[in-house]
């Protein structure tokens, strides 16, 4: 088992009232799953993803990731944990504008303190695998949206994470580009990577092996 959420609650206080963002979430994710999280706007999809990614905290409940209890970990250990095991893909790619494709890919490795020669090899490998060798010296602004997201996925993958969290990865792409990215996810999943994606599109959700529906912070 990769991760387990037990009775997760998350709320904000507004005007003396508690507004629940997540309400009693129970979820188990096995290695190799491909989960699609669906639901209308404001239902808590992104919040759930952020909690799983340890970017956001929660107010009540237990979260175990690879037998580590995340809820009792300190910030620094949590950061180490997600640095090592989780890769993120965003709707608006969030590539660093002032770095080239190659340098963007290198970034997570630098933060993981991977040695220079090894880093080069891994980057070259990834460029090869995604067929973007020719674009390695271009800046994000010189790429199309699909290409940028490709780089985004490549960057998420480069550190060999166990889990990829994707928050509407195709939201900013046209249908053809979106399809390509989803195909890529499917392929990665077949290679053994666990993926959790948030999506609005029924069609994209079909790529997953399991669909979770959220409504007002609650699983339905």
């Amino acid at each position: 088992m990769l991760l387990q959420l037990n009775n997760i609650f998350k709320w904000v206080n507004s005007g003396g009232q508690r507004i629940f963002l997540l309400k009693d979430i129970n979820l188990e994710v096995e290695q190799g799953e491909f989960i699609s999280v669906m639901g209308p706007s404001g239902s808590g999809k992104s919040t759930l993803l952020n909690v799983i990614g340890m970017l956001d905290s929660f107010d009540e409940g237990e979260y175990n990731f690879l037998d580590e209890s995340v809820h009792s970990l300190k910030e620094k250990h949590r950061a180490n944990l997600y640095k090592q095991y989780i890769g993120f893909v965003f709707q608006s790619y969030h590539l660093l504008d002032e770095l080239t494709v190659k340098e963007n890919l290198e970034m997570p490795l630098i933060y993981k303190k991977v040695k220079g020669s090894e880093r080069k090899a891994m980057v070259a490998d990834m460029l090869d695998r995604f067929n973007i060798v020719g674009k390695k010296d271009l800046f994000p602004a010189q790429l199309s949206g699909g290409q940028q997201q490709l780089v985004g996925v490549a960057r998420a993958l480069i550190a060999n994470p166990k889990l990829i969290l994707a928050d509407e990865p195709t939201g900013n792409l046209n249908s053809k580009q979106g399809e390509e990215i989803m195909e890529l996810f499917k392929q990665l999943n077949e290679e053994g990577v666990t993926i959790i994606q948030v999506t609005h599109s029924e069609k994209n959700a079909e790529y997953g092996s399991r669909i979770i529906n959220l409504l007002d912070g609650r699983m339905v």
């Binding site: 950061a79 640095k83 969030h94 590539l95 504008d97 550190a159």
Partner: peptide, 13 residues
């Protein structure tokens, strides 16, 4: 801030 966020998500201390 965006850059800082990305860097942190990528594991920057």
């Amino acid at each position: 801030t965006k850059e800082i966020g990305v860097r942190k998500v990528l594991g920057a201390s």
